[in-house]
Design a binder for these strands. Structure first.
Lengths: 120, 120
DNA sequence: TACAAGTATGAAGTATGGTATATACTTCAT
DNA sequence: ATGAAGTATATACCATACTTCATACTTGTA
């Protein structure tokens, strides 16, 4: 698919997609058979990749962190153990973020009680 | 306390504290009795406020969102119901972030299985 | 075939959340 | 009373994550 469809499929704007591609998060391929243009083609796997990027961003990871994760993910020079380690580290970070969020949630819940008592 | 102590108590750098104060997240008071300087005094409640800011930032909220929350929190013109509503909305946002994080976590866990199978 | 719409590329601009720097005044320890 | 350290203010600078703009080429449609 072309970038316009990719944008519609993922809900990510075209400039942002180009920014991501330029950043190295994924790569579309110019069709070798077509010599008249260098329009790039993006396949289904890139839709998935972008959904993953969106999720990771929502989760508070930077593009740089996401890139590192993707790089080790798809890097065949890394051993399986090494890849697993990278991903496990990311999972630990996520767990810590979830704990932090639960903390803030607790604070806010307590705050509601305080507000209702008129203490705020 | 002065800004130096505030910085030490909260672990937030002095430039960042000044940036926050300027942003309107809190406000120190210049001692009226002392005419020779305009050093600002920060009390315990500001330490608490900054801890809250740190937590909210960790949780992925922007300074602008945090400011809105603080403003409604300490705004006496808002009814109790209105304040509770604002905080409850924030709690919903946090719940949604937690769900998002759990999603990404699941994706990564699945990825580990895929890597171990050699599919990555 | 003409022209609107789509695509690629590079460069500049924007918003956020800071940090660094310069200047000037104040306080504190000796 | 003097020098080091602390405080206030303003401005400049920086990184990140985009968005906008300018330019130029390509494609599809009437």
């Amino acid at each position: 698919m072309l970038i316009n469809e990719l944008s519609k499929r993922t809900g990510v704007s075209i400039p942002t997609l180009r920014y991501y591609e330029n950043y190295g998060l994924f790569k579309g391929v110019s069709d070798e058979k077509v010599k008249t243009n260098n329009y790039k083609d993006y396949d289904e796997s890139i839709v998935e990749k972008i959904e993953m990027i969106k999720g990771a961003k929502e989760a508070g990871f930077t593009l740089s962190e996401i890139k590192k994760l993707i790089d080790s993910w798809y890097n065949n020079r890394l051993s399986i153990d090494k890849k697993v380690e990278v991903v496990k580290n990311k999972i630990n970070e996520i767990d810590s973020k979830i704990r932090q969020l639960k903390n803030v949630r607790k604070l806010l819940s307590e705050c509601i009680v305080a507000i209702e008592k008129g203490d705020c």
